[in-house]
Simulated scan of single mutants.
Amino acid sequence: MMRILLFLATNLAVLLIASITLSLIGFTGYMDAAGVNLDLQQLLVFCAVFGFSGSIISLLISKWMAKMSTKTQVISQPRTRHEQWLMQTVEELSREAGIKMPEVGIFPAYEANAFATGWNKNDALVAVSQGLLERFSPDEVRAVLAHEIGHVANGDMVTLALIQGVVNTFVMFFARIFGNFVDKAIFKNESGHGIAFYVATIVAELVLGILATTIVMWFSRKREFRADDAGARLAGTGAMIGALQRLQAEQNLPAQMPDSLTAFGIRSAKQSALASLFMSHPPLEDRIAALRQRG
C-alpha cells in the first residue's frame, strides 16, 4: 500500500511541477497556429519538462523513499559496538573519498546487500542490510561500504537521473512525431489529434521505452565497475574481491531490495542472456575479473 501511495504521490508531483513550469515559460501547446502540424521546438520543450521533472523529483525524494521502502533505521546515536564501528568506518571512508559523511542506516533484510542514494554527494544515505552485517567479515563489510561511498563520490545518482531525463525526453518526442505521422499521413486527419495519434503514440512510447531502458541499464552497469574500482582504492583490491565473492556465494538467495532501489544496491539477481540487457549490475564474475586485472 505504501509503495502505491509513493508512486501516486510522485506522479502527482511531476504533473504539478511540469504544469507550473510550462505555464511560467509561456507554453501554449506543440501544434502550429493552424492546429495541423507539430511545432517541433515547442514539442521538445514540452517533452523535456515532463521528461526531466520525473527523474529530478525522484532524485530529490530518493532518500526519503529509500528509508520508507526498505524500513531503513538511520543511526543517529550508535547504541552498540557494531553500530559504532559502522559509523566510524563510513566517516573514515568518506573523508578519504573527499565527501561529507552521509547518513548511515541499517535495513532489516536477510540478504546481503547495501545501497547509496541521495540528491547530491554531500547529502547522501548509505545503508547496509542486517544480513550483510551478520555474515560478512569486517574487511568485507568495509569493502561494501567503500563501494557505496564510491557511488556517492562519483555522483552516480545525479548522473543516472540526468541520463534518465534525457532518455524520457526523446522517447516522448519521437513517439509523438510517430503518432502525428500515423494520424496525418495514414488516417488523413486534417486538424488536431485523432484517436490514431494517441494509440500510435502509446505504442511508440512502449517500444522506444524498452529500447531506452537498455541504454540506461548499460550506463548503470558501467558505473558499477567504477564503484568497484573506488572500493578497491579505499578498502583494498583483495577486500573488494573478497566481498564480491561472498556476494557470489549468496547469489541464489532471493533478493529483497525494492525494484526502485535495485540499481543502487551492490548486487542484483541472476538473469538470462536476454534479460541481461536490462540488468542494472554486471555479472559478479565479470566484476571480480575486472578487479583482478586491475591488480
Rank of each mutant, 00 (worst) to 15 (best):
M2A: 13
R3E: 13
L8C: 12
L8G: 13
L12E: 02
L16F: 14
I17H: 03
S19Y: 13
I20F: 02
T21F: 12
I25Q: 08
F27V: 06
T28W: 10
M31Q: 14
A34M: 04
N37D: 14
N37G: 05
Q41I: 15
Q42H: 10
Q42M: 12
L43H: 08
V45I: 15
V45W: 14
V49F: 08
L59H: 01
L59E: 00
L59Q: 01
L60V: 13
L60K: 10
I61G: 00
K63G: 03
M65D: 04
A66W: 02
T70C: 12
V74P: 08
P78K: 01
P78M: 00
H82N: 10
H82Q: 14
H82G: 06
Q84H: 13
L86K: 01
Q88M: 07
T89Y: 03
E91A: 13
E92K: 15
S94D: 07
A97S: 07
I99Q: 02
I99T: 06
G105M: 12
G105H: 08
G105N: 11
I106L: 03
P108Y: 10
P108F: 07
A109F: 12
Y110W: 08
E111G: 15
A112F: 13
T117K: 03
L125A: 07
V126L: 08
V126K: 01
Q130R: 15
G131N: 08
L132E: 05
F136W: 04
S137Q: 09
L145Q: 00
H147Q: 05
H147F: 06
H151Q: 08
G155T: 04
L160E: 01
L160W: 00
A161F: 09
A161Y: 05
A161M: 09
G165N: 07
V167I: 15
V171S: 08
F173A: 05
G179Q: 08
N180P: 04
V182R: 09
D183K: 14
K184F: 09
I186V: 15
F187S: 03
K188N: 06
H193W: 15
G194N: 08
I195K: 09
A196K: 11
F197V: 11
Y198M: 03
A204G: 14
E205V: 03
L206Y: 06
L206P: 00
V207Q: 04
G209H: 04
A212R: 02
V216E: 01
V216K: 00
M217H: 07
R221E: 12
K222E: 01
E224I: 01
R226D: 03
D228Q: 11
D229K: 13
A232V: 02
L234Y: 07
L234T: 09
G236Q: 04
A239C: 06
I241V: 14
A243W: 08
L247Q: 11
Q251E: 05
N252A: 06
N252L: 07
L253C: 01
P254I: 13
Q256T: 14
Q256N: 13
Q256G: 13
F264T: 05
F264Y: 09
A269M: 06
K270A: 13
K270G: 05
K270C: 03
S272M: 11
L277V: 00
F278E: 04
M279E: 05
L284R: 09
E285H: 13
D286A: 14
A289P: 00
L291F: 14
R292F: 00
Q293W: 02
G295D: 12
